[in-house]
């Protein structure tokens, strides 16, 4: 089955599962109707919960989803459905209170029934979940701590909501209605069990050892790993993995990094990591022989799934890591198709892989177009951001048939997509990776 077909099937399943509780409301025997606003409030509550119930799936790193959809798209989708679901769910109590102020007594925690207490508690947890995710950096919550809180709050809030709807039991009389929510709860439990127990156990059984840590230009470090007691993993050029170092995989302190190495090398995995946060600053301290756990590979940012007469790579700074993996793989395979790599950096000295790219240009049909924000004196190359004129200057006439791979922060990706589409490139030929996913 083609990836496009799988994509359609998963999207179809998602639409069906999300709309199912609403459709079941229409099918099932309904209790006698009540006033419009109360019924709307209940329906929106179910709608919100149905969307929020989908949140556990995209971030569970399920291999069958991750092979079809880009992981950063799945994470963005997770964030968006969370906010949309939360907004709909919030409309449930708000409409209820406005339509019937008498129901405000349910907020009185001391004498409200448990079904109402559960709802209030879950709502508070959802507010904390959304606020701590949207404003994590403003609240100065460390990423690792936030992830622990996020996981615990999400499971507790979901359990409280299920308790609420089963105890209120107004529209859950029909076996289809009960069955749907039991199935949804079982899926949440299964996803949580997979993420929190099964996957870490798998990782524990397949450790890797550090064999080298070497500095790169641009305050980055390349970490080389070798499988310890197993055959290692096969990845596709441009993919990435989550790394855990100096702690157990059960601590969930892993961070995503792209492979920089060739897929044709099987006994060694390499990642290049820029010093940006808590974990990335400790990479240089890792010693040969230390254990590292590698959860992956993930991602769809690879050329194997996108055949073309030529490729265009566009990266800013450390966004070049997956591009290097693609280039090294093509060189090892003696792939002679042309590649143009537009590579933006602050200055000439901080161009990560500068020398490696020079070597690669001798081994394959590669043209590197460096763009510098602060060029050195006498610089003959391009400067500033990538413009349409720069793209047109370096691309061949048949560029609309080529495939495009862009890795960088979201504003850069959005700007590039716009320019390429204006130049006649189909959106289907543009593949992106947001390197600020976490």
């Amino acid at each position: 089955m083609s990836d496009a077909m799988k994509e359609r099937l998963w999207i179809g399943a998602f639409v069906l599962v999300t709309l199912a509780p609403m459709l079941i409301l229409f099918i099932g025997p309904r209790p006698e109707g009540r006033e419009f606003w109360r019924e709307l409030s209940v329906a929106l509550g179910f709608a919100g919960l149905s969307l929020m119930g989908m949140q556990f799936i995209p971030t569970a790193r399920l291999p069958f989803l991750a092979s079809v959809f880009p992981m950063d798209t799945l994470y963005t989708f997770h964030r968006r459905i969370s906010i949309a679901g939360f907004t709909l769910a919030l409309a449930h109590p708000l409409i209820l209170f406005i339509g019937n102020p008498y129901t405000l007594r349910l907020l009185n925690f001391t004498n409200a029934p448990w079904r109402a207490r559960a709802a209030v508690l879950s709502l508070l947890l959802f507010i904390l979940l959304v606020a701590s995710s949207v404003w994590r950096k403003d609240f100065k919550i460390r990423y690792e701590r936030w992830r622990t809180i996020h996981g615990v709050f999400a499971v507790v809030a979901a359990a409280l909501v299920l308790y609420h709807i089963f105890m209120v039991n107004h529209y859950l009389a029909h076996p289809l209605q009960r069955g749907y929510w039991v199935l949804v709860a079982a899926t949440w439990a299964a996803a949580t069990l997979y993420v929190r127990v099964l996957r870490p156990l798998q990782l524990l059984r397949r450790p890797y050892r550090v064999i080298e840590v070497r500095p790169e230009r641009g305050e980055a470090w390349t970490l080389a790993l070798a499988p310890d007691g197993h055959a290692g993993m096969r990845f596709m050029a441009g993919q990435f993995a989550w790394l855990t170092a100096r702690t157990s995989p059960f601590s969930f302190r892993d961070n995503p990094f792209s492979f920089n190495s060739s897929t044709e090398v099987h006994d060694r995995l390499e990642f290049t990591i820029k010093e940006l946060g808590d974990f990335t600053r400790t990479v240089k301290e890792l010693q040969p022989g230390e254990k590292v756990y590698v959860d992956g590979p993930f991602g769809t940012f690879d050329i194997d799934q996108h055949e073309a007469p030529g490729y265009v790579m566009i990266a800013g700074g450390i966004g070049s890591v997956p591009v290097l993996s693609i280039l090294r793989t093509m060189a090892d395979r003696k792939d002679t198709r042309p590649v143009v790599f537009f590579y933006g950096n602050p200055d000439w000295e901080s161009v990560t892989y500068r020398e490696d790219l020079e070597t690669l240009q001798k081994r394959m049909n590669l043209k590197v177009v460096h763009l510098l924000e602060n060029p050195p004196a006498g610089w003959q190359g391009e400067t500033g951001y990538i413009t349409r004129e720069i793209l047109e200057r370096h691309l061949p006439a048949d560029h609309a048939q080529w495939q495009y791979f862009i890795c960088g922060p979201i504003p850069m990706i959005a700007a590039m997509e716009k320019k390429l589409v204006a130049m006649g490139v189909s959106l289907h030929y543009i593949h992106t990776e947001n390197y600020e996913m976490a």
């Binding site: 709309l19 709608a47 798209t73 709909l88 992106t432």
Partner: peptide, 30 residues
Amino acid sequence: MQDIYARNLLIGIVAGLVLLSLLFALIQSL
């Protein structure tokens, strides 16, 4: 590319959920 599709898909789903909720409330309140 997929991000634009994902956003449109979500807008469609939310619109569908809200419309179904309104329809349901209307039917029940009649």
